[in-house]
Simulated scan of single mutants.
Amino acid sequence: MLSKLLRRSRLPATSLALAIMLSGCASLPSSGPTAGKVRAAANDPRGLGFQIVNLDATAFRQLAGATGPTTEGRFAPLAQDARVDRIAPGDELQINLYEVGVTLFGSPSGLGETAAGAGPAVESGAATARRFGPLTVASDGTIRLPYAGRLQVAGSTAYDVQRMIEQAFAGKSQNPQALVTIVSSPANSVYLFGDVARPGRQQLTAAREHILDTLAVSGGARIASDDTTVRLTRAGQTVAMRLGDIRPSSSDDLLLQPGDRVELVKEPRSYSVFGASQRVSQVPFEAPSVSLAEALARVGGPNDAQADPSAVFLFRYDAAAVAAGKPIIYRLDLMRPESYLIAQAFPMRDKDLIYIANAASGPVTKFVSIINQLFAPVLTAVVVSDQIRN
Rank of each mutant, 00 (worst) to 15 (best):
T136H: 04
G110V: 03
T103E: 14
Q162K: 04
A148G: 07
S189D: 07
T103R: 15
A170G: 08
S107R: 13
P120C: 09
Y98R: 12
T142S: 03
Y147I: 05
E123A: 15
P199V: 00
D140H: 03
T157K: 07
R163N: 03
F169R: 11
A121T: 15
L192I: 06
Y147P: 00
L145G: 04
T205P: 05
N188V: 05
S109H: 13
A118D: 03
M164Q: 10
A168D: 04
N175M: 13
A158P: 05
G141W: 06
V153G: 05
G141Q: 01
D195Q: 11
G149P: 02
Y98W: 15
F193E: 14
Q202C: 09
E123L: 13
P134W: 06
R150N: 06
V161H: 06
V161A: 00
A129L: 11
R131G: 11
A178W: 04
R201S: 15
H210T: 15
P176V: 09
V183R: 05
S185C: 09
I165A: 05
P146Q: 08
E166V: 03
M164E: 10
Q174M: 14
Q203Y: 04
R150C: 01
S107H: 14
E209S: 15
A158L: 02
I165F: 07
A187W: 05
E166T: 08
R131Q: 14
A116M: 11
N188Y: 02
I143N: 07
